[in-house]
Amino acid sequence: MSATTEIVFMLNGAERRVGVPSTMSTLEMLRDMLGFTGTKYGCGEGECGACTILVDGASVNSCLMFAVDCAGRQVTTIEGLANDPCARVVQDSFVKHGAVQCGFCTPGMVVQSVHLLATHPHPDELSAQRAIEGNICRCTGYKKIVDAIVDAGCAVGDRS
């Protein structure tokens, strides 16, 4: 059994203090220790993007990140985006475009889209496609998701 390390970090804007085994992934910490099950376990090896979270504003696969490395950082999960104005626009756009079917990929897709829009408020189709290269969807065929992201881009951009 590996040693447990106590870490302090910001999770969705609130300070958290937890003891985590040194080799635990951030995904396991979020889902199994803290109960934040919006972040999904798809492959556990960086291929599917269902586990995407934001760390200090950048999107990463939480299954590849050591939980101990969260210490001192700002971690945002899909739950933390519930009231985020940009994420709201993205979510509404996903609904409008029918970009959600079974929904398993959706949290990761939305977090990744929010990260894209933070740096590229008006993505074209190609940049939307490139942004979700690391996110697998087994249902939609991607077209509706890309449309939803491009459209959300317009909406977010228009408000600013």
Binding site: S2, S22, T23, S25, G44, E45, G46, N61, C63, L64, M65, F66, V68, D69, G72
Partner: peptide, 28 residues
């Protein structure tokens, strides 16, 4: 040594890399 962990995490889980007694995160 731990940096981004994108190799270390999958390789250690697959048993291809054995951890030393100390895990040293150099990102700070």
């Amino acid at each position: 040594v731990l940096a981004g962990g994108t190799d270390l995490m999958p390789q250690s889980r697959a048993g291809r890399v054995k951890f030393a007694r100390t895990l040293l995160n150099i990102r700070r």
